[in-house]
Amino acid sequence: MSTEPDLETVLLGPVLADRECGDCVVCCTVLTVDTPDFKKAAGIPCEHLVPGGCGIHQVRPHICRTWFCAWRRVASMPDAARPDRCGLLVSVNFVREPRNCFEGVSINVRKLAGSDAIESGMADIVLDSLCEGLVPVWFSDGSKKMLMHPADEVARLVISGDPAPPHLSDEVAIWRKHYGVFSTNG
């Protein structure tokens, strides 16, 4: 058994001991699951959901035992940011064939259908808690996906490969160093 931390732990931190899923089952409906031992389509409630949660909790598949949304890992996210309370699901996203270097591995903030997270300001609070590190952050409102971090000007320079002006050169260089592996421009 490996003692190396998984990528989600490296990017978001360990699961916080003082946060429990409780009766939140957003991930059990919203996410796609495609593992050897369990498959479920996005937007479809898991076949094992029953009133009050998971009907097979004690014997649930490995992915369900080991995956946790960002609210369970990021201490700077407020308690009110639990997905069922705020209408946002935050997770690490892996894209096999990214369109740009910021899509390969990133944090994805999904606004859930019917959520008022934008109007209530919760989306801003959650994004502020995530947009400080060296991990791209995307926001999806259900109709479009927008890069929120790094800033547009930095992202354009990183993707294009164009020289950065002096006031952005250090930041652009750091992003290029870390995300150049996902570059689509050679």
Rank of each mutant, 00 (worst) to 15 (best):
G43Y: 01
E8K: 06
L89H: 05
E119I: 12
P61S: 10
N93A: 07
N100H: 12
R65N: 14
A123I: 07
V74M: 05
T184D: 02
T32Q: 11
D84Q: 06
P61Y: 04
M148C: 11
S169W: 01
P136M: 12
R72E: 14
K40R: 08
V109I: 09
G53C: 08
G114S: 06
V154G: 03
P5L: 13
S120C: 04
V109Y: 00
G161W: 04
C69H: 03
A75E: 14
N93W: 04
A173I: 07
C46N: 07
S140P: 00
I159H: 01
R99K: 09
P98C: 06
F102S: 12
R85C: 08
K39A: 13
N93E: 14
D84T: 10
I56S: 07
L127Y: 02
E97V: 14
G22W: 02
L31Q: 10
G22V: 11
A164W: 08
G186T: 14
R73T: 13
D116G: 02
Q58T: 13
A164R: 09
C24L: 08
L147C: 10
N108M: 15
E119H: 05
V95A: 05
Y179T: 15
L11M: 12
L127C: 06
G104D: 08
G43I: 05
A173H: 04
H62K: 12
L112E: 09
I44D: 10
T32W: 01
S91V: 12
G52R: 09
